[in-house]
């Protein structure tokens, strides 16, 4: 666990350097139920940051707070060094995009129309649709491989296609920071990899900062450049996957005995759960 302590110190050290997005001393709560207290989180610039942790550890809540869709009960989320809740909503929306876990495609909307809605923060009452909007929408559909579906109704698409359309919408928002809440949930393994490959490409090719909540540890280890592991509303460890994803950490965070080996494809950590759970698995 020495590595994680070092990472924590490293994290504290970056506070003054001003990464674009960070949370400081965050207390997150729904009504009166406190999910996390005194949380400090840094999203390194140009990273593909992945937040992992067991169910109800507060990872989606943290993501919502970072995207200012949930107002922290205490503490501040800082975007470019300024309190995000004090910034104009549209200005934030041009810097930071969010793809929530559940979004509703309106009945009878086409792919192009849905992607076009991502242009909302760039539009004005008197300048509603520009050639720039059209160019960006086309480019976003092309980047996510849904250009051929432009005129199709979103209701008619498969789950994987639909998720790529939503990502295209988030891309059309043209934000340097993009937050994704469990973008692979409900998708089969092929579509999961497809979506993650797309995310990795967006991160590498455009220098975007991506933050995603993922459930699959092996996906997290393979795609992330920066991992944040949470349990019970605390950050247990943060850093490069190669350093963070150890058998000790997985056991500490998930109470799951396992081995961590090298992924034969990529050399990244691969978590292999122990063959049979012990008689008293989760009491430690």
């Amino acid at each position: 666990m020495t590595g994680t302590i070092a990472d924590r110190n490293a994290m504290a050290g970056t506070h003054d350097d001003g990464p674009r997005l960070r949370g400081s001393a965050l207390t997150l709560a729904y009504d009166k139920r406190v999910v996390a207290e005194g949380l400090d989180v840094v999203v390194p610039d140009r990273s593909f940051t992945v937040i992992i942790g067991p169910n109800a550890c507060g990872k989606s809540t943290l993501l919502r707070a970072l995207a200012r869709t949930l107002r922290p009960a205490a503490g501040t989320v800082l975007l470019d060094g300024r309190d995000i809740s004090a910034l104009p909503a549209r200005k934030v929306a041009r810097t930071l995009g969010l793809l929530p876990q559940t979004s509703v495609a309106p009945d009878g909307i086409t792919v192009a129309e849905l992607v076009g809605r991502g242009r909302y923060p760039h539009q004005r009452l008197l300048r509603q649709w520009s050639s720039e909007d059209e160019r960006v929408v086309r480019a976003s559909m092309k980047a996510t491989g849904v250009a051929d579906l432009a005129g199709r109704l979103v209701d008619e698409l498969s789950g994987g296609q639909r998720q790529r359309v939503w990502i295209a919408m988030a891309l059309a928002q043209e934000t340097p920071l993009l937050l994704l809440d469990e973008p692979t949930t409900y998708l089969d393994i092929a579509h999961q990899i497809e979506v993650l490959d797309l995310c990795a490409r967006l991160h590498e090719e455009r220098g975007r900062t991506l933050v995603a909540v993922l459930h699959d540890l092996n996906h997290a280890a393979r795609y992330a450049t920066h991992l944040i592991a949470m349990r019970d509303g605390r950050v247990v460890a943060a850093g490069a996957p190669g350093e963070v994803m150890t058998a000790d950490l997985v056991e500490e965070v998930f109470r799951l005995p396992c081995r961590v080996i090298d992924d034969p494809e990529t050399g990244t950590p691969l978590v292999v759960p122990a063959a049979r759970r012990r008689t008293e698995p989760a009491t430690r």
Binding site: R64, A67, R68, A89, R94, L98, S103, R117, G118, Y120
Partner: peptide, 16 residues
């Protein structure tokens, strides 16, 4: 029209 797609998404797009 944006808000019909969900509150979180609308906030993310800059709708109050």
């Amino acid at each position: 029209a944006i808000t019909e797609m969900g509150d979180d998404l609308a906030r993310g797009l800059g709708v109050r």
